[in-house]
């Protein structure tokens, strides 16, 4: 709650100082999805300085504007991240191993992903200074306004591939590690029922947590 209030207060405090222009807001709006229920896939590549090769992974995701997001990594590891609109976030390794995601950075990145999926330009514009690329059209760099967040994340770059539903997200953290995500929307659902079916087929335990989020006790029980 404190972090939330600090983040919120700081974001609001700096809103006036870093008011984003209409142009950037338009670009941002054009990049974000409009549907309420959809699924997609992603490819992720993370570059860590000490490691010789980038860490590559891929998987699928499902999103519901009513409940939240499941980010399901399938290769080379299998696990799901569940980000709920109720501000409770979980890591699901398998049916019996589930954990709360409590850290500061989990909280912040969950908020970012949820707002990107929801097309919540207001939240993003409040949290970030938006900088559009002069050289390339359709590239937007988001710089955190919050001092606390800045210490964990340096910037987030968004790039929309024209005439497709592909969004490239590049997160540079404070340790100069760069995580690149290419996400593409695969299917839209007209109703919540269709979404639930797709969600359950992706990961039953994750989907249950998404639809009915309850904090997991230290013993691992809900």
């Amino acid at each position: 709650m404190m972090i939330k209030s600090i983040l919120l207060s700081f974001v609001l405090a700096t809103t006036f100082a870093y008011a984003n222009s209409d142009k950037e807001l338009e670009i941002l709006k054009s990049m974000l999805p409009e549907a309420c229920f959809f699924s997609g896939e992603f490819n992720q590549s993370k570059q860590i300085k000490t490691l010789p090769v980038p860490l590559k992974s891929n998987g699928e995701f499902v999103y519901s504007c009513d409940s939240g997001l499941i980010w399901n990594t399938q290769k080379p590891i299998v696990e799901s991240l569940v980000f709920t609109n109720e501000k409770l976030h979980f890591l699901v390794l398998d049916q019996s191993t589930q954990e709360n995601l409590d850290g500061v950075q989990h909280f912040f990145l969950a908020n970012l992903l949820l707002s990107l999926m929801a097309g919540d330009t207001q939240f993003i514009a409040n949290e970030f200074k938006l900088i559009s690329s002069k050289d390339q059209h359709g590239i937007l760099t988001l710089k955190p306004k919050n001092k606390m967040v800045k210490q964990a994340i340096q910037s987030v770059m968004l790039k929309k591939i024209e005439s497709s539903n592909v969004l490239e997200i590049s997160i540079t953290d404070s340790k100069q590690q760069i995580t690149q995500i290419v996400s593409s929307e695969k299917q839209q659902f007209k109703a919540n029922d269709d979404f639930v079916k797709s969600c359950m087929s992706l990961s039953t335990s994750s989907c249950k947590l998404l639809l009915d989020p309850v904090r997991i006790s230290t013993s691992g029980e809900k």
């Binding site: 860590i48 990594t73 950075q105 995580t179």
Partner: peptide
């Protein structure tokens, strides 16, 4: 390391297993 929300508070050299970063975050 593969996890999307893993933006550690310490560098990989100072915390290869990510346990210290996780502790400080919590």
């Amino acid at each position: 390391l593969f996890r999307l929300t893993n933006t550690p508070l310490l560098s990989f050299e100072n915390d290869p297993l990510g346990i210290h970063s996780e502790y400080f975050s919590q």
